[in-house]
Structure formats: C-alpha cells, structure tokens
Nucleic acid binder design. Sequence first.
RNA 1: GCGGGCGUGAUGGAAUGGUAGACAUACCGGACUUAAAAUCCGGAGGCGUAAGCCGUGCGGGUUCGAGUCCCGCCGCCCGUACCA
Length: 937
Amino acid sequence: MSTHERYNAPATEAKWRAAWEQADIYRTDNDDPRPKYYVLEMFPYPSGRIHMGHVRNYTMGDVVARYRRAKGFNVLHPMGWDAFGMPAENAAMQNNTHPAKWTYANIDAMKAQLKSMGLSLDWSREFATCDVAYYHQQQRLFLAFLKEGLVKRQTRKVNWDPVDQTVLANEQVIDGKGWRSGATVEQRDMPEWCFAITDYAQDLLDAIDTLDRWPDKVRLMQRNWIGRSEGLMMRFPLTVHEPSGLSEIEVFTTRPDTIFGASFVALAPGHPLAKAVAEHNPDVAAFIAETQKMGTSAEVIEKAEKRGVFTNLRVAHPFDPDITLPVYVANFILMDYGTGAIFGCPAHDQRDLDFARKYSLPVHPVVRPKDADDTFHVGADAFTDDGVIFNSRFLDGMSIPDAKNEIATRLENTELDGRPQGTRKVNFRLRDWGISRQRYWGCPIPVIKCDACGLVPVPDDQLPVKLPEDVTFDVPGNPLDRHPTWKHVDCPSCGAPAQRETDTMDTFVDSSWYFARFTAPDAAAPIDKAVMEDWLPVDQYIGGVEHAILHLLYSRFFMRAVAKAGYGDRPEPFKGLFTQGMVTHETYGSLTREWLTPEETRPVTAAEAADLAAKYARHIEVSKRLDADPRIDKTLLHVVLDPAVETSACEAYDAYFAEAKCEPLTAGRIWFSPAHPLRAAAPEAWLMNLKAATLTPAFNYGVEKMSKSKKNVVDPDSVLSTYGADTARWFMLSDTPPERDIEWTDAGFDASHRFVQRIWRLVGEAIAAMDRPGSGDGAALRKATHASVRAIEEAIEGLGFNRAVARLYEWTNALQKAIPDTAVPGSVLRESVEAMVVCFGPMMPHLAEECWTALGKDGFVANAAWPAVDESLLVEDTITLPVQVNGKRRAEITVAKDTPKDQIEAAVLEMEDVKRFLNGPPKKLIVVPGRIVNVVA
RNA sequence: GCGGGCGUGAUGGAAUGGUAGACAUACCGGACUUAAAAUCCGGAGGCGUAAGCCGUGCGGGUUCGAGUCCCGCCGCCCGUACCA
C-alpha cells in the first residue's frame, strides 16, 4: 500500500466494521475471568433517526469502553431501545401506522445509523422495551412488587382534555389549552397505580453520600428533589364549626418559630375543607373551579399570580385564643405537599408576603437580623435569613432553632380534642411514583378488576398480558379501553366476568431496570441474580443531565424494590455517572423569527445590504422611539402592533411616516427590540431570506440546542456517510469539555477531518523513516511519548476527552518535528507511532486499525493492550520555578529538582529582576517547593 | 415561582489557591504552486516606542498570591413529577 494516498474514510471504515463483525470481537462473555467493567450510555428512544446528541453520547461511551478493553477489562457495552411512549401513538394518529410497525421500522433505521459510527457494542444483547419478552418480565416484576407491598393505589390530579376525552402530558398543555383540540384543560382526579418510592425516601437520601463518582450537581438536585424537612404538624381549631362538621385545620410547617407572625391560614384548592366550604359558598366554589383550569405542573402553579379567596372561616391562634386568623383558599398551596394547608407568615416567606400584600393582610416581623433592633421592618422582600426572635412573647431573644423547639415542645404537651396539638414530623417533598398512563403504547399493568374480588393480579401462567394488535387511533381516548374484547376476561380468582386494567405503565418503568436485563438478556427470570450482581453497578453511565432527577432516582428506587423482591441485591445501579452537554448550532430566521434552514438563507451582497438598510431604516427609527412605550413587552424580540390594541404605538408609527412624508405602513407595524439583529447587527452581517419573493432579510439568531422546530439540525447520517465516523467522533471529543454544550460548526468539523488526514500522512512518513539508525538516542521523543500516554490515560479516566485530544495534538506536533530529524532513531519513531495509534484508537477506531495494519502489526488494534508507561522517563531532574514579586511574575529560576529551600531563597534574592523591585530586605519570602517563589517587598 | 448549572482572547477552551490564555479554530505573513486548494514554517490578549500597565460577566471580600474560595448582582441554559 501507499501511505501517501489520501485516506478514504467511508470505504476504509466500512471495511473495518465488517472485519470486526466477522470476528465478533465486541461480544461479551459473562464467564470471562478478567475484571469486569460495565459501560452504558442511556439508551435511545427510536425516533427513526439518530441526532447529534446521540453521536456525542455514544462516542464518549465508546471511548471509555475501548479504553477499558485496552486496559485488560472484560467490558460490557450493550445497546437497546426505550421503545414505548407517546410519539408512536402520535405517528399512528397522523400516518395511520400501527405503533409497533412504526417503532420497529425506526429501530431498524437507527440501528443501521448507529452501526455506521463504529461503536464497540455487543449487539447480541439488544432488546427493545416494547418486545413482548421484555415487558413480560416487567409485568412479573410489577407483580412481585405488588406482593411486597410496594405498589399502591392513589388519586392524582391529571390534565384532562374535555374534547379529546384524554389525559394530557404537561408538555401537551400549552397556555392552559390542549395541544390538539385547543380546549381549555381541566384538572381531574384519577385513581392511579403508584410505586411506594416514599418508603425509601430516607434511604435514597442517605445513600447519595455514597455516590462519590456522580456529579455534585446531580447529587444536590436529587437531595433537593427528595426534599427532607423537619417540621411540626400543628392543628388550628376553627372558631366556628363548619357545617360539614370539620372543626380544625392541620398544617405542616418548618417554621413554627414564626407562629406569632402568622396572619392567615391557607388551604389548597383540593383540600377537603376547601371542598366542604365550596358546597355552600359560591365564591369559593368559583375560585376552586377556576384554579382547576390551570394545569397541573408545578411550574404553572407557582408562576401564576398568587390569588386566594376568603372562606369566612377563622381559626384560633394556638397560643392566644383571642387572636384569630382568617382562612383562605389559595392557588399556590399544593395539596401534594404536607397537609395541603399552611399558616402564612408574610414577614418571613416571600410567597406569603406577596399574598398578604395583595389582600392587605398584616405583616408582623418576628425574626430580626442579629444586628438590627426591634424597629426592624419588612418591605418588598421577606426576611428569610438567620436572626433573633422578637415580637413573640415567650420566644423573644431566642435563636430560630431554640424557638422551633420551644413551640414544638409546648404544642406536644397541649391537648386539643384529646390529642396533642402539635407533633414533630419529618416530611419529604418526594411523592410516590404514579405509573398509570391512559395510553396504548406501553407495558400493560397485569391486574384484573373484579366486582367481587377487587383488584386481582394476573397469575404468572397467564402472563404476558399482551397488547392487542387490532387497535385504531382515529377516535380520542385509550384504545385499550374501547377495544371490543381485550379487556373482558374472567376473574382468575372467582371466574366471574371481569375487566382488565387498561392503564399501561409509565415508560420510566421500562428504563428503570433495562441495565440489569442487559446482563442476562435471555434469562427466564426478569433478572439473573448472580449475573446481575456480578456486573452491577454500572461502572460508567453516560447520558443527558435532563435525566438527573427522575430517571436516575426511579432507577435507584427500582433496584431497591428488585432487592426486596429477591431478584438480587444491588441497590445502587450506577457507580459512575457522567452527564454530557447538548449539541447546539446556529439558528436562522426571518424578520419575525420564523425559523429557516441554513439553505434558505445566504449572505447579503454589499448592494443588497445597502438596499435592505434603506428599506428598514424607518422600522428601526420607529422602534427606537417606541422603546419607552410602556405597552410594549420588552422581553420579546419583536412585537407585531395590532391597530385595535396598540393604539399609541401605532400612532407613533403613523406620525413618523407623516413626518417623513413617505408611504405609511398599515400592515407590518412592528416594534423590534434593541436586541433584535435588525437593530443589533450591522446590515453587512444580515442574510438574504431565500424563501421570500421580495428583497427580505434573514438573520442569525444565535446558537440554540439542535431541534427540528428551530430548523438547525445537522443530520449525522449525511456527515457519517460523507466524511466517515472517525471525523464525527473526533469532532465530538475535541475542544469542548464533555459536560458542556458543544456548538456544531462546519469549520470545526472540517478541522477534524483535516486531522484525520494529517494522522494518516504522518504515520506514512514515520513508517518511511523507521529503518534509519539515527545519530542520537531520541530521548526527547521517548520522553514525549511516555508523558503523552500518561496524560491521555489520566484524561480519559477523568472523562476529560477534550484534554486527551489536546495531548494528542501535542504528540503529533512532536512527531512531526522528530520525523525529519535524522538524529532520532527509527526504533524510537516506531515506539512513538505504535503507542499513539493505540492511544487514539478509542477515539478514531477505524483509522487506528488502518494505521495498525500499515505498521505491519497483526490482529486488531481494538484488541491491543494499552502502552505501558516507563516511569523513569517521566522524572525531571531540573525544574523551572516562576518568581513573583508581590504576586506578579517578574522572573523565573531553573534549579536542580532537590535544591533545598534556603538555597533557592538565596539565589532568588540575588536575581537582578528581583532586586530592582526591592528596597532593602523582603518582608516575606514564600517558596512553594516545585511550584513557585513569591517575594513580598 | 422553586431547584441546579454555566460565564476566560475574534471563537471553542487550558490552568491540585501558584507563570492566565496550553491545544485547536478563525485570522495575518512567508514557502510550495501558472493559480487555487491542500500542505509546511512563522505571528498574534489589549494599550504602550519602551520600561511597564490593564486584563477570566459586574461590584465587594479573604489571601503573600484568586479564573479558582466567600458575599451581593447581571446574563444565558437545564429540570420542575403524564416528553423521553
């Protein structure tokens, strides 16, 4: 072969992938005696096409897998499909294809694309969660959990679309309306199957401390999500009994110390007392009805303006029956947390303060900063920091913890209706995991509802409960529920006619144990205990940070449940976790930011820029005049002015055109914000909008996460087939730290491609020089080689792929200088090049194989051992220290490695570059061995 | 709203509290070429003739020394329980 040919990546890569497959080198044997290493990337949803996020994720995982393989581990690196979920049903509705057909076709297409990346995956373990074999085992796990008491029935609030007669996901509710029907969404109570994750709240919290190879941010997010808080359940007696007979309100509070600052009690709209009042109070009933049209997500509820309605009820203050507090129903109180009721202390809680200001309720500060006196007042901001209690009778002068304790103790010892008025309670924000979904494309919940026997588990010999195939999606609602025969079965217990549960499981259930199933994908039981315990926990799990809470917490719970059900004791599934950043790309759009593909734009010529600038000068001028208009929402990039609404702004427009004596705009009155590129970017930087028939500008709207809707996706398939996988892989690893968002740029990608070619050329040139004896010993290159190997292995082990890439660039630079240097012996070149090929093999596996063959080596580099580092070459005998005067670098000094401190001090004080900054002896002289010298003048 | 993260040259970024800007991209100059691409060599944070001064989103603080630690802001991004 000639190594001076250009490297033909697509052809060469296909050749090596075929060779690997032929030799089946990525199949993992559970009985291989070498130490095990389990690398897993979060498995993909089979949307039909891979996206750049997948390319990044799987490249990182593959580097780790191939590196560990080279380091002598028995590596498990499997792949499968998170294949249930709503998109398949949406596709079924839109294209009239069955979800299964659509999903499996997508899997085939995506598998081919993934294969073209050259990943070292054991495809023999592949499965999809929609495979009957997989969900059969999942149903068995569900029933095992049911038997262990880990499954409950609870009532939950869901988004209900009254037109489509269906439950909506939060993302399907847009501004309070159903995405498809446009109908106003209502909250509705729905009985649900739940997993008892709260049983493990404390354990899940405590064990976070053991996850030392997880990112701190994820651990913190999980801690906050579990939300342990110590507080007090306290009961407030109603001053007048409510007609329904309810006589008290129980609240949970973490701030009992602020009880003397209480100015109201508020109930969640779903609170039993609120519902009772609504029976006879139309105002309260109307308010509750209105809050139910709000959507169920925490974001919507808490962002909404804080509003409430007075119930006409009052409660007595627990420490002074003469003080009574009004009872409100308020939209910001969550029924799911605590008791669904609070006492409001406006001075020390921002939400309570906002509420109190709105309804003119008193604001009594009862905690003051340590350095403030008793005149301390609260203005627009609640005081939530540490301080001293005041205005609180017997608590005055106490610290917050002491006051909390005092209140708790007193109320524990106060009887109200024969029970203590207060009880200390540890509360968790974490709720049980509702797994019921009223959808078709999910794992059926294997339970039968019998009028006589209640909820009856499907016996094991009647599993799996398969999804019926003859379903339609042309009418709203759950196809399982309206299927003519599927749900009608005989009760396994009494034999009477009964009905199947028609809910299916949340897809998070599917992804909560797939990593365990991969260890023994064909096992007769859901999990092969011994094999699973051998492989788990996953040594390195890699995926998006968007899974930091739910998926990862559910999986941690699930494995605890698995252990309780006797399927194997590995409560923590993921030992090492890494969350990679997203892939972003520039976006382009029209004047009013209708997204455009890059092909729908082109740069403007100088003449066009001038024309466009002239055409839009009027808009820019009017926009500037409107910047101060209070009617305009300044958070938007542009506002289309409606003559019917934006009268003053429109008048300003018309006035300008009258003044300028040019043709006025009637349509097209738009305010452009100062941040809009029409105003922020020079006309020469604008683009032509090729979709428009007339001379119309388009703009670069900045870098955003790749998404279809923003028309800024780059299709991996075309990149892979044109330039090859190694270029794409190298690009994904270069420059940007893996945990951060990476911006896809053509320039960066081209540079990666040039580097692939450069390596190929360099290896060829080195091979041509490998026979030479060399006039020197090549010590510098040997040192660079061994130092590079060490630096790269450290970088990969720390998942600093961008740092590993930088070290490889340095290494190729060193080689490039060494090749024409005839002093360097060929044997040293060979050592360096062979080591380098093994070291970049995990990143560019195809190129590495081709180089390996060119070097005359036998076998696959994919099976080659990682180069051994000669430690003796890494030891430096002299060392150069920077010398600072008053913290500024002024000189440097080179000394023998073991030079004693006092000798360094003496030498430094003799240096001209030091002396000229000194007037007499230094105040202080700091020598940090091996690091730095600092002279303090 | 709440929780979390990020912010360093034109750009991506590097830097156990110890020489800020490694490495790369874009750019500029040179070599090769009829020419271009590719390739190779060299340059470069800003200001200044220079000594030097200034520089890690903004404002404070701790330290002999702060991109790094602490406090307060600003901006962008992610999650928020039925998207996966």
